[in-house]
Every structure is written in structure tokens, then in C-alpha cells.
Design a protein around this nucleic acid. Structure first.
Length: 314
DNA sequence: AACTCATGCAACCGCTTTAAA
DNA sequence: CTTTAAAGCGGTTGCATGAGT
């Protein structure tokens, strides 16, 4: 399997394309099709290698390319497909008409990947990171919520409080489960996994967070089937972004499926308060994000239940 | 105004896969 | 079946631009 030598040829231009080159390539392909990429540059009067021409065409000049910002739906699709396919950019691109694999790859590396990391998720596994420092933001939030960190730190007065906060962090590390529950979202613990939220780095304080328990409480009438569903889904995470009522932007919303059994690798947490347990017993059917409709918070392959591509891949 | 740093994206590099001889 | 060229693909680089100091 020899490597293509086309790019090693001397005297061929590299670097950014000029408008004149674009026009030559576009005009030639529109008239003749690309045919053999190796012979195309000579026939089109371009001092480029065929590979460079192919890339320019597929990533930029193709008439069906969609440009501009990725929509929230496209973000969702990329996140979900990446959780299934990994870095198979071309495969992911087949589900996003008008988007190129290169564009999706860039978008992932510059936006989505960073966002997951910021929130303490491993961008490759889509699961919470196992190292302590990755979970630190959540631990700090946890401790703050438990009244162990000052809302407005004031160093001269906080020596004792900080010690208590650290003690709280250590306690959290030794306890069953850590997650943060976004109370702005409603869900039913029995009928579906609880919606758990983390937030982007610019999280505002408008959302209140509660601490769910290790195994989610059974809602009335839920029974064993619901419990089994929880167990089956243990460890899976789904996520989305929903409009933020306060500032008009988006906030990240995560659903963390299950808690025990090694699904989540986040450090464990102490038991849940009764208040938080109550919060988990609300109706999923009414779960809406803002006024714009709901975001599907489903674990992957259910996200594309009838997609033969996914079915075949799995 | 000048400089530094961060970000986004187009393009390249080189490995793998596919198809033809 | 083997060899080879071509195409496909994912990782990486480098430049342009904007924000911050």
C-alpha cells in the first residue's frame, strides 16, 4: 500500500488558495466533473497537487456545503454520534447534510470537546473523569451548597470555614455518589433517569442544585421494572443545551443515568436529603426546556432508534 | 498604540483503505 | 494473490483575527 507521492512533487503551490485558483477549480469541475484528482490540476491549469484540489473542493468549494454556526440540533447530533462512533468524523458528517468532516472535527476540537472537559467529562468516553482534579469543580460546588464554603469568600475571615470546606470535600470523596441536580428541570425518577445538571464555566447562580442519593428513590407505583431500567442505564450520560431563561443564552444540561454499580466514576456522595428525593419525583412528560420545546435526553442508541447506520454499526 | 495570548479554521501530512491491473 | 496508485480519513499545524493587558 504505497503512499501517494502527489504532494511530494516539487514546484507545486501549497498554502491558502487564491480566488483565481478557486475559480479555476470550480469552473473545471462544474464543466467536467473531477474525474481523476491526480490529472485534474494539470487539466484545470492549476499548480497544485490533486490531493490539495480534492480537499479544497470537498471542504470549501462544493456547492452543497452549509456554512455558518452549528445549530443546537447539530450540536446534539454530533455529541450523540461521537458517543457512539468516536472520532469517525466522516461517519458523523453523513448525518449532518452540508457539513464536512473537517468542519465537524474542528467544531468538536474547538468547542464541544473543551466544553465537556470544563464540565469534568472525558471527551472520549463521555463519562465523568476519574481523576480528582477533574471532579474538583463539582466538589467545590457541592461543598458550597452544603454551606461549607462561603458564598462570597473573604480571606481574612475564612480560615476556619475553608478548613470545614476541605473536610467536606474529603467527606464527599468518601461517600456514595456525587452529582448535581438542576432543579429547573423536572423529571420523574421512576419513569426515567433523573436529569442531572452541570453547567458551563459561565454558570450563573440562578439555578439551585441538590444532591441526589446513590440509588434514585422509587416513585409511587414505580416498582421493579423502573429499578431495572435504572440499572441497565447505569453509567450512561446524555446531555443537551437548553435556552437559559435569565440571560437568553444556553446552559448545558446533563442527564446522568444510574449511579451505583460502577457506572459513574465520579467520587461518591453521602445520602440525599428528603427535599432532593422529592425533587426527583416529578413528571418527565412535563419536562420542557424553556418555551422552545424539549431536548431529547436519551442515551445513545435510543437517540436514533430507527437509523440503520447506527444499527449496523452497533 | 503596541504587545501578548487565545481562538477558529483552512490546509497539510501521513497513514489506512480501496480498487484496479 | 500481489502490487500499486488513488482516494479517504483523522491528526496536526500554522495563520488570521480578536480580546485582553
Amino acid at each position: 500500500m504505497g503512499r501517494s507521492p502527489c504532494c511530494d512533487e516539487n514546484g507545486l503551490k501549497k498554502g491558502p488558495w487564491t480566488q483565481e485558483e478557486d475559480e479555476k477549480l470550480l469552473h473545471y469541475i462544474q464543466k467536467n466533473g473531477h474525474g481523476s484528482w491526480r490529472t485534474l490540476p494539470r487539466l484545470a491549469g492549476l499548480n497544485r497537487c490533486g490531493k490539495s484540489c480534492r480537499l479544497r473542493w470537498t471542504n470549501y468549494l462544493r456547492p452543497d456545503i452549509k456554512r455558518g454556526k452549528f445549530s443546537r440540533e447539530e450540536e446534539q447530533t454530533i455529541l450523540h454520534l461521537h458517543s457512539v462512533l468516536g472520532n469517525k468524523w466522516s461517519a458523523i458528517a453523513t448525518h449532518l447534510p452540508g457539513r464536512t468532516d473537517n468542519e465537524i472535527k474542528n467544531f468538536w476540537n474547538t468547542h464541544l470537546r473543551k466544553r465537556l472537559i470544563q464540565m469534568g467529562f472525558d471527551p472520549m468516553t463521555h463519562r465523568p473523569r476519574t481523576d480528582f482534579f477533574a471532579a474538583l469543580p463539582q466538589l467545590i460546588a457541592l461543598a458550597a451548597l452544603r454551606g461549607q464554603l462561603p458564598a462570597d469568600p473573604d480571606p481574612p475571615q475564612q480560615a476556619g470555614t475553608t478548613a470545614a470546606a476541605l473536610a467536606g470535600l474529603i467527606g464527599a470523596l468518601c461517600s456514595p455518589q456525587l452529582t448535581l441536580l438542576d432543579t429547573t428541570t423536572t423529571t420523574t425518577a421512576a419513569a426515567a433517569p433523573p436529569v442531572v445538571s452541570s453547567s458551563s464555566a459561565d454558570d450563573d447562580a440562578a439555578h439551585q442544585y441538590y444532591l441526589p442519593r446513590t440509588t434514585f428513590p422509587d416513585a409511587p407505583g414505580s416498582g421493579e421494572a423502573a429499578h431495572q431500567r435504572q440499572q441497565q442505564a447505569a453509567g450512561l450520560i446524555s446531555y443537551g443545551r437548553r435556552p437559559d431563561d435569565d440571560d437568553g443564552g444556553d446552559v448545558d444540561v446533563f442527564a446522568c443515568y444510574g449511579a451505583g454499580g460502577g457506572g459513574s466514576s465520579l467520587p461518591p456522595l453521602t445520602d440525599l436529603s428528603d427535599d432532593a428525593a422529592t425533587l426527583l419525583q416529578v413528571d418527565t412528560a412535563s419536562s420542557q426546556f424553556g418555551s422552545g420545546g424539549s431536548i431529547p435526553l436519551l442515551p445513545w442508541p435510543e437517540f436514533f432508534p430507527d437509523d440503520p447506520f447506527i444499527t449496523d454499526f452497533l
